[in-house]
């Protein structure tokens, strides 16, 4: 038997085996399943009206800004950059997306307009929900970061937060799943420019009572502990309560519980307000992203 013959037989067997495997599965009753789908399709718009209070959104964005600054300040830890490191995850996420109406509804339901306003956060200070928005500075694309042992040039660290609304839907949605867990719906992607680096991508997820932030950093770091410690030192940012569990590193930063993990060349962070989500719940939120 030639190699070609083997190949053909193999293909035929695979095709036939798959056909049998699929056809031999007895499906559930169609009417019952369709009724469930129909009900959920009808219910969907109402669920999307649940949004978090505006101040929580401000706080979320402030925390995102801090985290992104921190990540941007650790360029020395960046060990690899892939052309498309998250390709496999993208594939899954791309398919779990909100449609245009849902996204519009979600955006309409909030008063926060991050598109035109820079975020301001005082290094070393607690993030106050009402202290994060200052006068519009559209041209601001720099990040001023006080290094360890240095005096901050100003008492503020300013970054420009730009929504990625001009990106095609598929591009935006490729990085982000439609939902985190069962209760948090993708609201919008924010691009935060970093000094001499590509903007970092953050997604805001709206929940019934508060928001979540998901950060995607398209590179890996050698050591997540060093990664987070470097963040704290460089930014004079009160990060504490480090704890490893399995492949996760937990921390608390600026009033937010944080979790960092790496998968497929991407470093991701999920942040949630303290006392609202525990570590186990954070792990549950992170699991589908791996």
């Amino acid at each position: 038997m030639s190699e070609n013959d083997k190949h053909l037989i193999n293909d035929h067997l695979i095709r036939r085996a798959l056909q049998i495997e699929i056809e031999s599965v007895e499906p559930p009753a169609a009417d019952k399943m369709w009724h469930a789908i129909e009900t959920r399709l009808d219910r969907r718009p109402a669920e999307l009206k649940k949004t978090a209070p505006v101040w929580i959104r401000y706080a979320s964005l402030a925390a995102a800004a801090c985290l992104l600054l921190l990540v941007g300040g650790i360029g020395l830890f960046r060990v690899a950059q892939f052309a498309s490191p998250s390709a496999e995850f993208d594939a899954a996420a791309e398919l779990i997306v909100m449609d245009e109406e849902e996204r519009t509804a979600a955006l309409d339901s909030t008063e926060l307009e991050v598109s035109d306003e820079p975020l301001v956060a005082a290094p070393g200070s607690e993030i106050e929900p009402d202290a994060v928005i200052e006068e519009q500075k559209k041209d601001t694309e720099t990040v001023t970061v006080a290094g360890a042992g240095e005096e901050p040039a100003e008492d503020q660290t300013t970054i420009a937060a730009t929504p990625a609304t001009d990106l095609p839907d598929e591009t935006v949605m490729a990085l982000w799943p439609e939902t985190l867990g069962e209760n948090y719906l993708f609201s919008e992607e924010i691009l935060l420019p970093l000094v001499e680096d590509e903007p970092l991508k953050v997604a805001l997820y709206s929940g019934p009572e508060h928001d979540l932030l998901l950060v995607s950093y398209e590179a890996v770091v050698d050591n997540m502990s060093d990664f987070v410690e470097k963040i704290g030192i460089q930014m004079q940012f009160p990060i504490n309560d480090f704890q490893y569990k399995d492949n996760y590193l937990f921390f608390v930063a600026g009033g937010y519980n944080g979790l960092v993990f790496q998968h497929d060349g991407v470093t991701r962070a999920i942040m949630a307000p303290l006392r609202t989500i525990n570590k186990e719940q954070l792990i549950d939120l992170a699991a589908p992203l791996q």
Binding site: M33, A36, I37, R40, L41, R44, L95, I96, V97, M98, D99, E100, E102, E178
Partner: peptide, 12 residues
């Protein structure tokens, strides 16, 4: 069920 719902909502 989830797959059909996702599909119908993202047919575009």
């Amino acid at each position: 069920q989830d797959a059909f719902i996702k599909a119908f909502q993202n047919l575009h």
